[in-house]
Amino acid sequence: MSVPLVELDNLTVRFHGERTVHAVNGVSFTLKAGETLGILGESGSGKSVTLKTLLRLLPENRTEIGGGVRVDGADILKLEGRALADHRGGTASMIFQDPMLALDPVYTIGEQIAEAVIRHEGVSSAEGMARALDMLTRVRIPSPERRLKAYPHEMSGGMRQRAMIALALACRPKLLLADEPTTALDATVQIQILLLLRDLQREFGMGMIFVTHDIGVAVEVSDRVAVMYAGEIVETGSVRDLIRDPRHPYTKGLLAANLHGAVKGARLHAIPGAPPALAEAPKACSFAPRCPVKVSGCDINRPPSVALGEARQVRCVLAAPAPGA
């Protein structure tokens, strides 16, 4: 098999400040070219931090990153200057929950896309504008010629999201990083953007990492899903396996909490308590304090990542096949 597009090896991210936060604690995964990985987790699970590490977007002076991060063969943690700039927006680019963060309010959409293309590919400004028009057509913005000259604030929420996607994909990145891009959108608009991203991902043949807190969204776009909790991946597998047969108690709890098909009037099997504050690196199972099926030893040892078949891993002692079975 060829080299994977993304290779994370035991990534750890620690933030120093008034308090130390162990945001990511040993995350490893690989992403093949053209594959979509959904990272599912709640706030503070480290999913966005993991994503930002791939573009080196974290504040350098108070972040301590350990482990290996390789994208398209390059060691991301060693990139400097020009190479880093080429990586950001060239090899990999990112879309956000709030498009106003990615779009500059004082330039038109067309200018911004053209500028990005000119900077990364050194083409003429006419070619840049032609690419901008092409991109707006591809993200299915109605009357794209007119929209080239529009400023971000003149567009509706869904349009802005499309414009941001057009900007992110203008330089044909091999990897698209999506950080909850549909969370702030209305339901009928969210599904449009999800379908668009699914189509574009296939059309451009790029790898995509899609971070979300919404299981339903992850199911719509991903090939594989990694569930994160307290800075660790607790379970990973194909969407089908994960939805049909969740093995980690946290994944099971999340699925139940989605209320899809919940029986009215029946009590919800809520996960008690709240996620840990991550002031120190986990020594035992981070989920143990909230776990309904905790056994002795869960509070003491860090559970191993148990491989169950191809591309299926669960970080839980109960997932291990019983000896002799």
């Binding site: 869904g158 379908l195 719509e220």
Partner: peptide
């Protein structure tokens, strides 16, 4: 969202923003 990887939504029911 469909919650079923084998029966994903194939077409957006509405176009445009509210």
């Amino acid at each position: 969202p469909s919650m079923d990887p084998d029966r994903r939504t194939m077409e957006a029911p509405l176009a445009g923003d509210p």
